[in-house]
């Protein structure tokens, strides 16, 4: 395919993905807005006032970056996993497979579809958080870079999940039993300084911790970890997941007999 044709194919996939999650906005955009508003009201306002300061900020201010990142992670992941698995399930993925669209364009299109939803939800949650607290911004560039890279990484993870999934249960297993615990234990609600040494060391193995803290550093200027390490880790995951996802597509894993 010529470059211009590749661009059209990529743009078509991306627009279709955006059209999908905006068409079903009560399932994709509304729930995180409601859930996060409850988090802000209950954990931030009601309980947070009793907790006091954390890292030099009010508890509400401290958890907002983590909750935004949590929304971005779960929505990026679930957008790609559910969309690609649905395409597999109703065989509409064959529309792409019979076309000359290169596999890397398919992967990129779905990934950026997930990023679009992740960032869209992230923006909604950010705006909502402003109704509950004042937000500083330490580094706009770092904040944007971290949120975008994290969204790419989890979108790719969602794609790999969808490739392997054989039922809708398989699509929900990873978010429920892996992603959610990693996110909750990834420093969204607390600083790992509060943990005993052993659990601090264990927490350092959780990749979500790096992303949440890097994002928090971009907004508040405080972090439990070295931000540059976080960027390196995310980039490595992206390269590995992209390579792995592309290899699965080339093999036709789960989509070709």
């Amino acid at each position: 395919m010529k470059n211009s044709e590749i661009w059209i194919a990529f743009y078509t996939i991306l627009v279709r993905e955006i059209r999908r999650f905006t068409r079903i906005w009560p399932q994709t955009l509304l729930p995180p807005a409601i859930t996060m508003s409850l988090y802000f009201a209950i954990f931030g306002n009601l309980i947070g006032e009793r907790i006091g300061e954390m890292g030099g900020f009010s508890y509400m201010q401290y958890i907002v970056p983590g909750l935004i990142m949590m929304s971005v992670i779960t929505n990026s992941y679930s957008n790609v996993s559910s969309s690609f698995f649905s395409a597999k399930f109703q065989h509409s993925v064959q529309e792409l497979l019979v076309s000359p669209t290169p596999n890397w364009v398919i992967l990129l299109g779905y990934t950026l579809g997930g990023v679009s939803r992740g960032l869209c939800v992230g923006l909604i949650v950010t705006v909502l958080s402003l109704f509950f607290t004042h937000m500083a911004l330490e580094s706009l560039l770092l904040t944007i870079v971290v949120v975008c890279l994290t969204s790419v990484m989890f979108s790719l993870g969602g794609f790999v999940n969808a490739i392997y999934a054989r039922s809708f249960d398989d699509v929900s297993i990873v978010p429920t039993f892996i992603l959610t615990p990693l996110t909750y234990l990834g420093g969204v609600f607390y600083s790992i300084d509060l943990l005993p040494d052993f659990w601090q060391t264990v927490s350092m193995l959780n990749p979500v911790l790096y992303m949440v803290n890097a994002f928090r550093f971009g907004i508040l200027g405080v972090s439990d970890i070295n931000v540059y390490w976080a960027l390196v880790i995310v980039c490595v995951f992206i390269v590995v997941l992209f390579g792995f996802g592309l290899r699965l597509l080339n093999q036709g894993k789960g989509i070709r007999s």
């Binding site: 044709e5 059209i8 743009y11 109703q90 509409s92 064959q94 669209t101």
Partner: peptide
């Protein structure tokens, strides 16, 4: 290819099913 089983996105409109497929072939 016209396959034996229906394999389009059932939630898309008729027009979008056809136009989207063109996009996969790089057609403006």
């Amino acid at each position: 290819v016209v396959p034996q089983e229906f394999n389009f996105n059932v939630f898309e409109t008729v027009f979008n099913v056809v136009v989207t497929q063109a996009g996969f072939y790089g057609i403006s």
